[in-house]
Amino acid sequence: MKVLVPVKRVLDYNLKVRVKPDGSGVDLSNLKMSMNPFDEIAVEEAVRHKEGAPNLPNSHYKAGAVTEIVAVSIGPEQAQETIRTALAMGADRGVLVKADADLEPLAVAKILKGIVEAEQPQLVILGKQAIDDDSNQTGQMLAALLDWPQATFASKLELTNGRASVTREVDGGLQTLAVELPAIVTTDLRLNEPRYASLPNIMKAKKKPIDMKTPADYGVDAAPRLAVVKVAEPPKRQGGAKVKTVDELVAGLKAAGVI
């Protein structure tokens, strides 16, 4: 089966964002950008269902369950690098939908719907959220637009006979759903540990094809629905006080009225 994996270019996980002094947004200039970590997990999951996972004992991954992986990114020209990373991890080809403005999840979901209609995958695996805007919406929105079932926040994905059995991380523990394919799955942290691409695979990825598209190719009006009023620093927390002993700690907690 064919799997579509959307990947987003975001500020690197290890970096702290700076708010612009005029409150108009955040300053990303000269900062390292990487693939959204949840999307790396999505790519890894697709690759394991394609290649199998011979190094994992008793694994549920079967080589050949997935036959083709298409990595999609919607963003600036440089999002090509993010697609190349996915290709180096094992995706087969890419689609870049060029958009210079930051698109909202609803617009992204509409563009992805157009790509799904063109590509006809049986499964779309997305990260559950992007670590920049922390929206956690795109997969669910895409499922609604396609009228497909969804299994979000996945920690295990099993593919069998036109169905997926998906274990989800929910507030009280774990929940397992059976969904008919085609379906939408979004990844949580425990689904897998993504690989680092090897140098030969990075070289091979340079030869894999990337299609160039625009939102207009899918007939999507990507105009934002939300107007940014301002972006501000969060209130600073007054911290940093130290105590030397446990007795001093307990006295402090008593004085603060929390024990």
Binding site: E104, P105, L106, A109, D134, S135, N136, Q137, T138, G139, Q140, M141, L142, A143, A144, L145, Q150, T152, F153, R168, E169, V170, D171, P224, R225, L226
Partner: peptide, 23 residues
């Protein structure tokens, strides 16, 4: 903004053609 709400809300929003606001 629990796992239940986060799972369902965007699905409703997309059906209504509304851009959801999270968290």
């Amino acid at each position: 903004a629990t796992t239940t709400g986060k799972n369902v809300a965007p699905r409703v929003a997309a059906k209504l053609d509304v851009m959801q606001i999270s968290g």
